[in-house]
Each structure stands twice: as C-alpha cells, then as structure tokens.
Design a protein around this nucleic acid. Sequence first.
DNA 1: TTTTATTGGTTTAGGGGGTGAACTTTTTTG
DNA 2: CAAAAAAGTTCACCCCCTAAACCAATAAAA
Lengths: 149, 149
Amino acid sequence: MDTRIKEAISLFEDVMIYGTEQVLRSMDEQFWNQYSPEQLHLLKLLKKEERLTAGRLAALQGVHKSAISGRTKKLLAKELIRVVETPDRRSKLYELTAEGERVIGKARELTHRYVQEQLVDHVNDEEIDQFLRIFRKLKAIIKTEEVDE
Amino acid sequence: MDTRIKEAISLFEDVMIYGTEQVLRSMDEQFWNQYSPEQLHLLKLLKKEERLTAGRLAALQGVHKSAISGRTKKLLAKELIRVVETPDRRSKLYELTAEGERVIGKARELTHRYVQEQLVDHVNDEEIDQFLRIFRKLKAIIKTEEVDE
DNA sequence: TTTTATTGGTTTAGGGGGTGAACTTTTTTG
DNA sequence: CAAAAAAGTTCACCCCCTAAACCAATAAAA
C-alpha cells in the first residue's frame, strides 16, 4: 500500500481525532469559554431549523435524550432558548431567543474570522476548491441524523 | 466576498468544530468506549516520543497539568503506561507498557480501516493528493506545542 | 551553608460532556 | 378502557477541563 495512503490516515488521525479541541482553544478564549461547543451546536441547529423538539435535537446531535435534557436546561437558564407550546403535551419544542440569535451570530463571526485568517489567507484559489471538495465528503461521512437508539 | 469562501467556512464549522465527536462515535463502539480519545492521544504521544514527563505531556496535549495528573493515574491503573525513574525526583517520566503498545496498535488499526472504508475507497487518486495538501495545512494550524501557561 | 525562590506534580472543588435505567406523563392502540 | 408506546426528566456514575492550594525536591541567592 501506497505511502500516500499512510500519510492520509495519519493526518486524519491527527486532525480529525486528536486535533479538534485545539481548534476551539485557539479561536477565542473569551467567547468559547462561556458556551460549550455542544451548546453552540444546539443553538446553530435551532437557527437553521427554527424550532426543534428535544427528541429531534438528540437525533441531530447524535446523543442520548438525557444529554439534551441537561443541555436545554442550561440554555434555558442562560435565556438563549425558550419553550414553545405544542398540542402534544409530552414533547417540548424549543426556539432561539433574541439573545440566542445574538450569541450564534457572534460565534459565526468569530469562526469566520478564524477560518479567514488561519486558512483562507494561506491558500491559493485552486486549494480552496480542493478544500471544498474534500470537506463536502467529510461532512457527508460524519452526518449523524436519524441513527436513533 | 466569494460564495466559495462562505461555503468553506460553513464546512469548516460543521466538520472541524461540531463534527468530530461523530467521527469517534461511528468508528468502533466496543473499542472506543473503553479508552477516551484523550487517553489514546497520550498513548500515541508516548509511542512516538518513547518517554515523556507529565509536564511535557501537558504541553503536547495543550491542557493543564492537573488534567495530565488525572489521566496518567487512570492509565497507570489500566497498566497501559509505567513510571520510569529519573535523577530529578520531582518529575515523573512515563513510557508505554506492552499492553499500552497493544492498545495503541489496535487504535491505529481501527482508524486505518475506518479511513480506508469511509474515505479512501470513495475518492479518486487526484483527490487523495488534494486531501494530503489540505490536511497538512490543517495540521500545521492546530499544532499546539509549547504554548504553556 | 542556609534561606528563599522556583519547578514538577497532586488534590480538590466546580462546571462541562456522555450513558443507561428507572420513572412520569401524555398519547395511541387494540 | 386498559395496555403499550412515546417524550422527557432524574439519578448514579464515568470522562474531560481549569484554577487554586499545597508538597516535595531542586536551584539560586545571600
């Protein structure tokens, strides 16, 4: 087997498995210390889908429902999300508050700046296309969605 | 600004920030549930460097020394690492045990299979080169090393 | 030398993350 | 209408992390 494949595997390990925390650490101390990646992810999902139930959030984040129960409790306390009444009184439907919108906007802005400075400014045009092609595949691979218990 | 850049940023977010946990989850339930990513990372560092002190491990993993203190305690209990005597009796030098070698070998094998099946089998030759180019840059960006307190 | 830093680790409190099982409550179903 | 299923919460337990207090050993100063 090709040494290129070996290098690819090693890089995948270093970057995708052991390297992600470092990304967060190097982004913005102030902001990323206030909200966990998982909390921001949940907010981001609500931003995109408008309203989601706890069960749906669990499926989308790929975690057990009890994890969502705790997370939403914290986000409710921080007033970043609110509960919307629904006909089925078993389920809880969540949506962002204005403050939640603000926070997710800020997160996006910081990510934008980081990627721009760290990556985009250091690659040429051709490499951006390569980045897009590769990352579209990666995103497809890690897509969680509907694995359920 | 180019829509390609926007897509790049969005992909970076999805993959590098919110997507990594999913990678671990989808790899191998059995094995990855026994050892945390951080524990395996530490073993991997020892595999590469042979012997490392607690302080050095903290720098390499980019965490506080107390985090290493706890981690090494667990790995010692599992007998995956051992302490090596040194002249300076303040510091602790660690190295892998035979069992530690076995575990890190297994981790590498599983990663290998995963990357092969999920990624390599679905890209063509040209894309592998693109993957290498992009991931070498990413690795350079997230390199922690010697940030210290 | 003797005293005073400094360095390397450990411990503890407190706050994240996660799971699985037990338990409610509300809907569905047969 | 009783039994089963679905949606959430709580609890015990484990991992991760930091910051601050604390010890022990080595290095530096006086």
